[in-house]
Design a protein around this nucleic acid. Structure first.
Lengths: 247, 247
DNA sequence: CGCCTAGTTGACGTCTGTCAAGCATCGTGG
DNA sequence: CCACGATGCTTGACAGACGTCAACTAGGCG
């Protein structure tokens, strides 16, 4: 029990380990994995974890709080490609070019675990489960991106926002928060930039949702009142009858 | 030199090997890799390589021709998430759920190399370069998807189409075709479904492009006349001077 | 108390989807 | 070789959704 380091926490005792990379590792393997993980002191709201174009060294697992990834194009346009919540892995999109494709910014007080990718990669040589888990994480990221693409490609503002809130609810639920009552980590403007909608549209649609009793939203405090109706609005037809899903 | 099998081709002699998974492997390693690759007889136009929901067993490398991935949602809406050209790897999005998220359909006569993922995964244990290449491929797919997301999230029909043609040109160039003169493998309707635009819009915008001398398009025969103007139209500003920007 | 940012609400224009009709292109068979 | 239908593509008219501009309100903080 050496707790010499201030931020010393261990994967073995982390409540998020069931969502994180160590997911399917044996006890001994987790211990080995734990040795390459570095805990960083918390980021404050607005602080950046890395900048666009910076050399890629580490991936990060979110422990608490939340972050956004912003890509700024040559012409100055911004796009928020994704938000990251506790238990999610950040930086997998940086492997190919060996640089970070965007800015990673904390939306609130946020703690992350830093995992040197080189060491992760070589550790994955010895631990097939870890390797598979890494492949799965990346594959999931592709699938999630495709889902968002579908959303953006043809859906109305209502569908986009309903889908966004539904997705947020599911992910918050997974990491231990309430699925129906939570505080939005991001601003309306962030949501707009992410979904390709003007901030005014966000405002109007949320107003409409509230009027129709789908949800209650005061500033950033959200309460989902009718998840079924929200899902329908998102274009998801049957929440009940068989959909194939397994790990 | 056993050439018993009809479709026996070898990675060592494949003109696309510099784009494909064996990219950074040594000669011996390529040989080892080659043993797990199965060549399939060509797919004809419209033939499916796999169906949505089917169990995931193999990834595929495109040798010639082209394919599209179509996802059909519960409500019947279709989305073409991506097109695959020679040298590109298909199926990486199936790892997480262990099933194929969509239909993979040949757009023309197409040949692919079948790579059993289980064997690929275990081979990647012994070959760090292969492992890294796999990570890179997946990472690149995420990056490409994000690019498309940005396109879909806020760009006009003109920008989407200009960007689409530019992207196609770059990819065709990479796999040995001409970058300025080629035959579109997909229909207008496919492009529309992919970019989230009505087929009529595609038609109108392409007409405009032609009128403005950006490109020449007769049916599926395309000639790009002014790549610079096309890039500008796609929202890509400076092909030259670099810009530094941060928050 | 007053400024500043975040969010709301309204008026208006435009892009693009929808519907509908017309045209070209291709393969099939007589 | 041409007729013919099927399919894919183009063009036009119109309407609706959403972006833009602008004014206004509500919190948050020195």
């Amino acid at each position: 029990m050496n707790t010499s380091h201030l931020h010393r926490t261990r994967c073995q005792t982390c409540s998020l380990s069931s969502l994180c990379l160590p997911l399917s590792l044996s006890f001994d393997d987790v211990e080995q994995f734990d040795t390459i993980v570095r805990r960083r002191s918390p980021l404050t709201r607005g602080e950046t974890l890395y900048m666009q174009g910076e050399k890629f060294e580490n991936v990060y697992a979110v422990r608490s709080g939340s972050l956004k990834q912003t890509i700024i194009e040559a012409n100055g346009e911004e796009q928020i490609t994704s938000f990251y919540l506790p238990g999610e892995l950040v930086g997998l999109d940086s492997i190919d070019s060996d640089t970070h494709p965007g800015f990673l910014t904390a939306l609130e007080r946020t703690t992350v675990c830093e995992i040197p990718f080189k060491r992760l990669e070589s550790l994955s040589e010895q631990l097939p489960e870890l390797r598979h888990q890494l492949y799965r994480c990346m594959s999931r990221e592709i699938v999630d991106d495709r889902r968002l693409m579908r959303l953006l490609s043809s859906k109305t503002a209502d569908e986009r926002l309903a889908s966004f809130f539904r997705n947020l609810s599911v992910r918050l639920d997974r990491c231990g928060h309430s699925a129906v009552r939570f505080r939005l980590p991001m601003s309306r403007s962030d949501i707009g930039t992410h979904l390709g909608l003007a901030i005014e549209t966000i405002s109007r649609v949320l107003g409409r949702f509230q009027q129709q009793g789908l949800l209650n939203i005061q500033g950033r405090q959200v309460e989902i009142l009718d998840m079924v109706a929200l899902s329908e609005r998102a274009g998801i037809v049957t929440p009940c009858c068989g959909e194939q899903k397994h790990a």
